[in-house]
Nucleic acid binder design. Structure first.
Lengths: 234, 234
DNA sequence: GTCTATATCTGGATAGAC
DNA sequence: GTCTATCCAGATATAGAC
């Protein structure tokens, strides 16, 4: 709940959440993971996830071999298998973790009370910053979603909709307050989400045009406000 | 150049283009393809592509085995290999074909001269309809782009930008004609493209909400026009 | 806890019959 | 033109040394 609305302060929030993530992950799978020392396990889990995200995003998770993963993470194949039961399980763990960490941070960031337009632009900023800092996680979560088992895919959809609802609720509130036009709020939210998503799916494009995250935030906010705000004749 | 601005008429344009596609593909690889009879080759190429798109979109191209592909297309593994030299080559062929057919049809559809706002909404409609009809192609082209070799990936980027330029040019023209606000036209185009893309990347979402392609077209057009049009005080 | 070596299997590719 | 049978590289996963 720190007022972290520049990307640098935000970065610390994320770093802390990431550290928590691996600790929780270890405790959650404690019974199965053969390694007993938390500090060791947490360090290796971090290495494994980092390597898996990088390789998965480069050539696709299913094209990544366990040898690749071992080489990149600095662990032997034997060691890898002490942390998860198989490649499928690893995929599930990564996806679960991304969804959890993303949902948690976003929810944290929209708790404060503000007028709808400000709240909306804050939510947009929070999502953009987060996807910028956690780019590999966002990209992976989207690109590999279809390769999950049915349950996990269901959960991915739930969280996608949950995040979208955050935006829809803000829009609805603004409409009730009389500051937003009465468009369908769920569809407006879907469009905002589409714009947010482009930022992490087409990073290369914005980089090559030297468009930074703040600039992009301004663009989305501008477009969305011109669509939603009731024009007060100036 | 038929005035095909409802989706049904559009469907015929696409069907014809698809038939052409396989014929051209055969002629292009004639020297290498062992099958000599055009009618046979064209029929089988169509089956193979259809199966590969379906399987690739279900579980990812690299997770699709040649045995899967054989079963789904109704051809034996031996037969498959008379049409392409290997799995990589097949991926390249599919991607090349999608990009070609998409670029060609879109270009065809924006030749006519109209005032910028109308031209813009037509281009949006054309892109949406096309992605609706050729959904498997669009989805595949996007999701598998990162698995291509360097040359092919370069070409994919080129075509992405080429399509975006169509939108940017229309916006620039509208600005010069004094009907559009002077925002950066390349970034506005990128945002339109993001919205168009959501339609085929998140098809499940719009289906489950019973939002049809015409409704979605209206939404995008509405949002874009509220952003671009210079407000004429009514 | 981690490594190396190895068992086992999957899946791309081909040879040769029909 | 198409199929079946087979080869073999490379992948997952495990056993057992250290």
């Amino acid at each position: 709940m720190t007022d972290a609305f520049n990307i640098h302060a935000f970065r610390n929030v994320v770093r802390a959440a990431e550290a928590d993530l691996y600790r929780e992950l270890f405790r959650q799978h404690k019974n199965r993971i053969k390694v007993k020392k938390e500090s060791v396990a947490v360090r290796n889990l971090a290495r494994i996830f980092e390597a898996a995200l990088a390789l998965g995003n480069e050539k696709g998770f299913s094209a990544m071999s366990m040898r690749d993963l071992g080489a990149r993470s600095g662990l032997s194949m034997g060691a890898l298998y002490t942390y998860f039961t198989g490649k499928d399980a690893l995929l599930d763990m990564i996806q679960q973790s991304s969804l959890n960490i993303i949902a948690r941070i976003i929810n944290d960031q929209v708790k404060e009370n503000h007028p709808a337009p400000k709240k909306l632009s804050r939510a947009i900023l929070a999502h953009l910053y987060l996807s910028e800092i956690m780019h590999p996680w966002f990209f992976f979560a989207f690109m590999e979603a279809k390769n999950l088992n049915k349950n996990a895919r269901q959960k991915a959809i739930e969280i996608e909709l949950c995040i979208e609802n955050i935006f829809a609720d803000i829009i609805t509130a603004g409409q009730q307050a009389g500051v937003f036009r009465k468009v369908k709020s769920d569809l407006a939210a879907a469009m905002i989400k589409a714009l947010l998503q482009d930022w992490y799916l087409k990073k290369w494009k914005y980089e090559s045009r030297h468009v930074g995250v703040e600039t992009y935030a301004g663009l989305i906010t501008g477009m969305v406000e011109s669509y939603l705000l009731i024009s007060t004749e100036t």
